[in-house]
Every structure is written in structure tokens, then in C-alpha cells.
């Protein structure tokens, strides 16, 4: 079993390296970087929603929190290594507190959605109105609606003057996404991940087996927030400015749309959904005939009505239907495992 996993992983790495190497020939690295970052953001929601069953309407809150943490820390510290670490831990800690409050209160679906939505709104309103000089953290002014510009961007650890930007930033982001992807893969194969999927399927049964559902959900929620925070910090480096728009409802909505379109319960789906839709939006932004939002809305409605499982599961089942018929015990076993794999993720 482990050998087959290993082969799949190797194939994934090779495919990813080829993609990372080939894509800049098609799309400019400046655009690609943000597509990769959005992919990571979508993966963070794909993990907690698709595998943990936690529908978070406020994933943008952790994204924004990561970006703001990075910007504020970078202004105060003057280099980027510590701010990057903080940008992962602060959202995770925030999510752990929020998650503990929600999950230990046994709040479920709708209430969870509303509370995460409301928390995002609170952050948005607060940051949006923090324009005055009294809102200062260290040397960093929060800047209200205008956001925080001019912070120290990513540098090679230990060498504050060696900035990583342009093409180099793209490769850093792409490798980070690959690392996060394998972290998620590893997590889902571990017993923690399997139990998380069990909780998604039947919470009562898992808790009756003696697992602490509340603690596990809280931890999963925090891990998702940490990934979103990392994406936020990378986004801050890409945009070189952070604005309250990162916390907006529109941003949260987009993350959910990416996951739905790409396919829930898969690791690849959210990434593909995010990169594809963000690129589509980029292309649409170059014309002014039809409003962008309108098309995104239509896409979401159509997907919910006609392809509620998303692109990746649909393509996978199509692939299985056309090429999946092989004979012999070995391939039968492999098919079985693929089924388990697709059931688990």
C-alpha cells in the first residue's frame, strides 16, 4: 500500500515541477504568482470544508489577518523571516480561539456559517475605520481604508537586503504551495485526517467511539487558518500593500466559489478552481462589455444546479469510465484503493 502511495507522490512532484517550469511560458509570472497564492487559499478552505465538514464563511478573515500580521510585523522588524512565521501563527491562534468558542458550544452548520461571517465583518469594519493616528501597532499605522503600504517585502532569511521578487517570488510561492499540498496530503493520511473525515461523515458515531470531536475540529480549523495566513502573507508580498478589502465578504465568497467549482473533498479541486476562476476573472477584467461579478454569479449558480460535485470529481469519474477498465488482480486492487482514495480524498 505504501509503495503505491509513494509512486503517486512521485508522479505528483514530477507533474508539479513540470507545471511550475512550463507555466511561465504561457502566463506572466506576475499573474501566476497570485494564481498560486489563491490556490493555496482555496486549499485551506478545501481542507476544513471538504474534509472536515466545517463550512467557514470567513476564510478571508484568516487570509486578511495573515496579510496584516505580516505587514505590521515587517514594518516593526525590518526583515521578513519572523513576520512570515507570525503571519502563520497569529491566524492559527485566532482560529483556535474562535473555533474553541464555536465547537465547544456545539454550534453547527448554519450557526457556524453566520458566526464566521459576522467575525469577518467585525474585522472588516474595525480595520476599515482605523484611519486615525491613534490606531498604531508599534511603528505601523493601520491606515483604515487606505491599508498599509511600504512594508519590507520578502527577503532571503538572514539577509534583509536580498529581496525576493518577480520571478523568484513566483518560484517561492509555487514551492510553498507544493509543500502545503503535501502537508495536507500527509495530514489526511494520518490518523488525525482519517478521523476528521469520520467526523465529517458522522459526528455522533465518532464521538461515541471516544474521540474528542470538539478538540479535533478546533485543531483542524486552526490548521486551515494557518494555511490561509501563509497565503495572506505571500499575497501581501505580491501586492506590496494590504487593504481592508482582504477581509471583505466578496473575498470570502470567492474562496467558497473556487472550492465548489473545483470540487469539494479533493485536494486538487480547490487549487484548480481558484487558479482557473482567478485567471478567468483576470481575462474578463480586460473587457468592459459584461460585468465581472455577473459572470461569477452565473458560474456559481450553474455549478450548484448542474455540477454540484465540481470539476475535478466529474473529470475523475469520466476518466475512470473511459480508461478504468483493466483486468487482473493487481489493477482491481488498485481500483479499489482508488475508490477508497476518492472516498477519502
Amino acid at each position: 500500500m505504501s509503495r503505491s502511495w509513494g509512486r503517486q507522490d512521485a508522479a505528483t512532484i514530477v507533474a508539479a515541477i513540470v507545471l511550475i517550469w512550463l507555466m511561465p511560458l504561457l502566463i506572466s509570472t506576475y499573474t501566476l504568482t497570485v494564481l498560486v497564492i489563491y490556490g493555496m487559499l482555496a486549499l485551506s478552505l478545501g481542507l476544513i470544508w471538504g474534509f472536515g465538514g466545517i463550512l467557514c464563511f470567513g476564510q478571508a478573515a484568516f487570509f486578511g489577518l495573515g496579510a496584516y500580521t505580516y505587514a505590521i510585523a515587517a514594518i516593526n522588524v525590518g526583515e521578513s523571516t519572523l513576520p512570515m512565521i507570525l503571519a502563520v501563527f497569529v491566524p492559527a491562534l485566532f482560529a483556535a480561539l474562535l473555533g474553541a468558542m464555536m465547537f465547544y458550544g456545539r454550534l453547527t452548520d448554519v450557526y457556524l456559517g453566520v458566526i464566521t461571517l459576522v467575525v469577518t465583518l467585525i474585522l472588516f469594519k474595525f480595520v476599515n475605520s482605523s484611519a486615525g493616528p491613534q490606531y498604531v501597532i508599534g511603528e505601523a499605522r493601520l491606515g483604515g481604508f487606505n491599508g498599509i503600504p511600504g512594508f519590507h517585502t520578502l527577503n532571503i532569511p538572514g539577509q534583509p537586503d536580498e529581496y525576493i521578487w518577480g520571478d523568484a517570488l513566483y518560484y517561492v510561492c509555487a514551492v510553498a504551495l507544493l509543500a502545503v499540498y503535501f502537508l495536507v496530503t500527509w495530514l489526511l493520511r494520518s490518523s488525525f485526517g482519517r478521523i476528521a473525515i469520520g467526523i465529517r461523515e458522522n459526528e455522533t458515531r465518532v464521538s461515541l467511539m471516544g474521540y474528542d470531536v470538539r478538540a479535533r475540529k478546533t485543531i483542524l480549523f486552526a490548521i486551515g487558518a494557518a494555511i490561509a495566513g501563509l497565503a495572506g502573507a505571500l499575497f501581501a508580498n505580491w501586492g506590496e500593500i494590504v487593504t481592508p478589502g482582504l477581509f471583505s465578504l466578496g473575498q470570502s465568497a470567492e474562496i467558497i466559489i473556487w472550492c465548489i467549482v473545483g470540487g469539494l473533498g479533493t485536494r486538487l479541486g480547490p487549487i484548480i478552481g481558484a487558479a482557473g476562476l482567478a485567471y478567468l476573472k483576470f481575462l474578463l477584467g480586460q473587457q468592459s462589455l459584461i460585468d465581472n461579478t455577473l459572470i461569477m454569479g452565473i458560474i456559481l449558480v450553474l455549478f450548484v444546479l448542474f455540477l454540484p460535485k465540481g470539476i475535478v470529481p466529474a473529470v475523475a469519474s469520466l476518466w475512470k469510465a473511459s480508461f478504468g477498465r483493466r483486468s487482473g488482480r493487481k489493477s482491481a486492487r488498485r481500483r479499489h484503493m482508488r475508490r477508497v482514495d476518492s472516498a477519502n480524498g
Binding site: 463550512l55 459584461i290 461579478t293 455577473l294 459572470i295 456559481l300 449558480v301 450548484v304
Partner: peptide, 20 residues
């Protein structure tokens, strides 16, 4: 959950419509 997502799509659609 599906009504939630579909109506979110509708809300984006209406915003786009009104903007146009």
C-alpha cells in the same frame, strides 16, 4: 448549503446586473 451557495451566486449576479 446548496441554497446558500446558489443564492450567493444570485446575489453576485444581481450586483453585476445593477452595475451594468
Amino acid at each position: 448549503v446548496d441554497t446558500m451557495l446558489a443564492t450567493w451566486g444570485l446575489s453576485l449576479f444581481f450586483i453585476g446586473m445593477a452595475t451594468m
